[in-house]
Design a protein around this nucleic acid. Sequence first.
DNA 1: TATATATGCAAGTATTTACTTGCGCAAATT
DNA 2: AATTTGCGCAAGTAAATACTTGCATATATA
Lengths: 127, 127
Amino acid sequence: METRRDVFQAIADPTRRAIIGMIAKQTINVNSIAEQFDISRQAVSLHLKILAECDLLNIRQLGRERLCEAKLEKLNEVHEWVDQYHKLWKERLSALKSFVEQEELQPKSTKKTNKKNANNTNKSKRK
Amino acid sequence: METRRDVFQAIADPTRRAIIGMIAKQTINVNSIAEQFDISRQAVSLHLKILAECDLLNIRQLGRERLCEAKLEKLNEVHEWVDQYHKLWKERLSALKSFVEQEELQPKSTKKTNKKNANNTNKSKRK
DNA sequence: TATATATGCAAGTATTTACTTGCGCAAATT
DNA sequence: AATTTGCGCAAGTAAATACTTGCATATATA
């Protein structure tokens, strides 16, 4: 029950994303969070524990309460991962756009055969 | 085995992230992907199925092969979710910065008691 | 001090994962 | 026509998840 535990896995659960949304606004205690959900306090507590393990939040004791504070900077890992593809995608969009525009200018002339292009099957069975 | 299935869950698995990384570069067939991993072809195939269900990739048949093509735009959902917090975090960083700077200018004078600040416990037990 | 409150810990359960192995089939290759 | 190749389907398994209920404990509060 403690093998993989990274930020990606942490935000995979919708309840945990909702929790992040709550504590991102303001630091609140465990019960206040639990009240917002239909699941038991224990279940929420476990989610908080997971989030804390992933360093997505900070729990500090204040009397009998435990205040949960978001550590949004830990989402950077996800941000960077997604961003590389986001950029790649936008790049391709504009590339496609200019391709189409160029195609409109010189129709049917020097178009190469890019039909069997995607076929990069590994014929070499090296296993 | 088909309850929750969203993009966040899809990218939670490191193998699936690796697969996305592979097909983002170029469209390749199932076996070529499977060869890159230590797990069985079936396991990879299942990951691909999950990714396809989440619309993160397109599988099209070409003869006896199945070409997997990335649909990076589907990562937008994740991008947007993370980005809101990314922005929020950066915002707070600069807010903190200007606070510190202001603090340095007028030391100890009008500093409010922001010690018991975080304590917004819901005293009203409405359940 | 007795009681209510905030919360953790432990044990137990139903589902879901992530895999595996074995089989089958259709499209290429020989 | 026979064989190889690419890949899905199905059944089975081990481990992880997401929860629950019950109990314990420390801190406020009446």
